[in-house]
Nucleic acid binder design. Structure first.
Ligand SMILES: NC(=O)c1ccc[n+]([C@@H]2O[C@H](COP(=O)([O-])OP(=O)(O)OC[C@H]3O[C@@H](n4cnc5c(N)ncnc54)[C@H](O)[C@@H]3O)[C@@H](O)[C@H]2O)c1
Ligand SMILES: NC(=O)c1ccc[n+]([C@@H]2O[C@H](COP(=O)([O-])OP(=O)(O)OC[C@H]3O[C@@H](n4cnc5c(N)ncnc54)[C@H](O)[C@@H]3O)[C@@H](O)[C@H]2O)c1
Lengths: 235, 235
DNA sequence: AGAAGTTTGTGAACGAGAGAACAAAATCGT
DNA sequence: ACGATTTTGTTCTCTCGTTCACAAACTTCT
């Protein structure tokens, strides 16, 4: 997994963006991208790290350090050229090319995802919607028809699909995941509350509503306790 | 914000779970809880840290350390009592009480969320569905009727709502957020692609599909580049 | 009872990330 | 031309999180 990661620069004289941006930074780049797009829409040509940091909701030092991993795209005393930086980040993330995506499990959530316009807006193209329920196959959502899950392998092959979205019940998730992986998908976004086991070369990210709510509940409870302790102390 | 955090134990002799579990641990507790529930359903009475770690998809040492923040609930040479540990985690997170939740923005996504059964299963009770679109008000989803967003304050007050879910377009998110906060909500789960500004005492967590896809795309691109470099090197 | 085998809880080493602080590099005003 | 001002890029320090490794504590077998 880490075979080629810690190698110091491949070719001589190529220190720029030395293959390997910290994970925490990668997770923030899309946020910066969004902030830049919003500034660009407002006809702002140049922005300082402080401006950008405010728009992105982060510390300005952190933002500058993040951007420094990509290269030196700013100008001291001036700031960053909004459109130029936007393009550089997009290129670094890989948004200058299109990505084909399949959604498996077209229930409540899958249908919402299929209808989501923000999907296509950033170079993510829906190649197919797949479901195992015969009653759902053939239904039209947006501009796509729901296909049978049996077509998965053909769809992935024909559309060079790299990213699979799982929106099935938890029980089916691992099975669907295995099918995706064996068809050649190497990135998976999982909405089902299940732990997925995948080979090393496959990336999995999960979105879990229930976990988010529980984290909020924990802090909410703590706030209440703190208040209680405060009142008790005041007596 | 950190006023009472670094104080050493409140009462004498009360070192157990000394108010303040690391954030990374808090985020994993719900995963452990899910693993325990699944084991309990399979009539497993006792599980070792290795068993649990496998079920939760984490390192066993990490799991043990996480659990040690709650107290010493395991037995050396044996493992953990599944149901006992399950209760302890649930209590620590605050799931032994019910939490009232409102969803604002009943479009594609909000409707899917409202239909989501996994919501209620863990002590999260939907108090209301709110939308600003008059055409949507009155529509029935699940066992709730969509209310006008003008009712927000009354709903929050009458149901002691602590958690608000935002599923409106990005443009409306900050405005809705402000309304929620001023009505008394102190935890917010945001699905809109917008940076929310809130007072210190309010917690915000975001779920952002677009960001997740972009992170996957970055790694996907890197994998492809690595492969390319490998082939070039082999020539 | 005592030896052998398990498994927890935690100290210590290591690594990653956040933020403060500042020198270097650019612009602007005179 | 040159000092004052702005703002980046980076170094340094500190905090937080992960993982290893092992003594302590428990069970089981003889
Ligand atoms: N609805 C939500 O708001 C929400 C929120 C968070 C998480 N989730 C999770 O997302 C998942 C989907 O939720 P939902 O509400 O859409 O459920 P759903 O029951 O409405 O839809 C599930 C769909 O998956 C299909 N399916 C089942 N097995 C399949 C298989 N092996 N291959 C292909 N398709 C299969 C079903 O036919 C159905 O259409 C669940 O795991 C749920 O826990 C949903
Ligand atoms: N649909 C998805 O799968 C998906 C996925 C990821 C993120 N999102 C995000 O979630 C949000 C909702 O997406 P959607 O597809 O459901 O959009 P949508 O347009 O279908 O629904 C938005 C709803 O919000 C309501 N609304 C607008 N302004 C409001 C206000 N001020 N107060 C109360 N209600 C208001 C609208 O009437 C509408 O019903 C968007 O920000 C979107 O970017 C959606």
């Amino acid at each position: 997994m880490t075979s080629a990661r810690s190698r110091k620069s491949g070719r001589a004289g190529d220190d720029r963006a030395e293959r390997g941006i910290p994970e925490a930074t990668v997770a923030r780049l899309p946020v910066y991208l969004r902030a830049l797009t919003s500034l660009s829409d407002g006809d702002v040509a140049t922005a300082s790290s402080a401006d950008l940091a405010t728009a992105a909701g982060v510390n300005s030092a952190k933002l500058r350090k993040d951007l420094s991993y990509l290269g030196t795209y700013g100008t001291r005393g001036v700031g960053y050229d909004v459109n130029y930086l936007r393009y550089q980040i997009a290129r670094e993330i890989g948004l200058t090319q299109d990505w084909s995506v399949v959604i498996v499990g077209i229930g409540n959530l899958g249908r919402a995802l299929a209808n989501y316009s923000g999907f296509a807006s950033r170079g993510f193209r829906l190649a197919a919607l797949l479901d195992s329920d015969g009653a759902r196959v053939g239904e039209v959502i947006g501009d796509l028809k729901v296909s049978a899950v049996e077509d998965l392998e053909a769809v992935v092959r024909d559309n060079a699909v790299a990213i699979g979205v799982i929106a099935t019940p938890a029980e089916a998730a691992q099975d669907v995941c295995d099918q995706l992986v064996s068809a050649g998908v190497s990135s998976i976004l999982n909405f089902a509350p299940a732990v997925l086991v995948v080979p090393d070369h496959v990336d999995v990210r999960k979105v879990d509503l229930s976990i988010e709510l529980q984290i909020l509940a924990y802090h909410e409870q703590r706030k209440a306790q703190e208040l209680g302790a405060l009142e008790a102390g005041a007596v």
